[in-house]
Design a protein around this nucleic acid. Sequence first.
DNA 1: CTGAGTTACTTTAGACCTGATCTATTCAGG
DNA 2: CCTGAATAGATCAGGTCTAAAGTAACTCAG
Lengths: 155, 155
Amino acid sequence: MDRETASRTDDHQALRLWLRLLTCSQLIEREVRARLGRRFATTLPRFDLMSQLWRYPDGLKMNELSRHLMVTGGNVTGIVDLLEKDGLVERTPEPADRRAYRVRLTRAGRKTFAEMARVHEGWIVEMLAGLSRKEQTDTYRLLARMKRVTMEAGT
Amino acid sequence: MDRETASRTDDHQALRLWLRLLTCSQLIEREVRARLGRRFATTLPRFDLMSQLWRYPDGLKMNELSRHLMVTGGNVTGIVDLLEKDGLVERTPEPADRRAYRVRLTRAGRKTFAEMARVHEGWIVEMLAGLSRKEQTDTYRLLARMKRVTMEAGT
DNA sequence: CTGAGTTACTTTAGACCTGATCTATTCAGG
DNA sequence: CCTGAATAGATCAGGTCTAAAGTAACTCAG
């Protein structure tokens, strides 16, 4: 019995769609968090941050990380602090602007993340393996529509 | 530029689907959280908890709340504490079991929630208004599949 | 009836997240 | 130059969440 099941009876279409979306998202996210903790003793926010740095080998400034991850700056500070303490990322000074840092993966960070990303993708593939290729692309396309209309509505 | 856009290039199908699902979910959730704060000076967890109690006028025990909301017991304790302090819910003793409480909405809680739920559904309808009725039901059905296969894979 | 195991809830430590505020630096006009 | 606005980042308070440990009450075999 979860939130969604408990409320199906008399709600309306858009609301039901939203609750189901939330349920799916939480099911996967919860599992990924648990596995990241068990297998790699890390967390989803840390994984996400490292994933961004992985795509930008020259590093990113704090505010760029903040935009990419869609979280506040104060939050990025905290996560980078923790990753830095573990030696997975480093803050290097930005010569052009003494206020700014450039955050990048260390050698150890790259090694660690490469392995994590490989295993992580396997988890997702496994969790969604029950969906046919067509179901996956159909869902992907419909969620593209949802993403678009939601972003437009939010403006 | 968000997480998903930043990573589209060379990822595989299931992973892309998951990232898009996460993006959609976060877009809506973020907006709902912001509006709940601005309009009602409350938070999504508090709203969710009250929403469960709304459906069970006789109240729920703490562990039932925990199961419905899919969060840990310690978390429920904290949220109920805050709602109780605001006079929106009350803990009443459970005669049959002196370890347990029965949590229910107070009169003020019912009044407050009724208004919040009405406005909240309006927000969701508005945010998803760009989707046709068919798109909504198609997405709903595909997410039902995803929910099912994900829960089965998680077992 | 008793004590070992279970269950209901709370507490705690630690991570996460936001919004607001602070410090230091940069930049744009005058 | 000099000053005020804007920007980069850090810090803080408060709420959220988990896992683990703690307390009290219940259950039921022996």
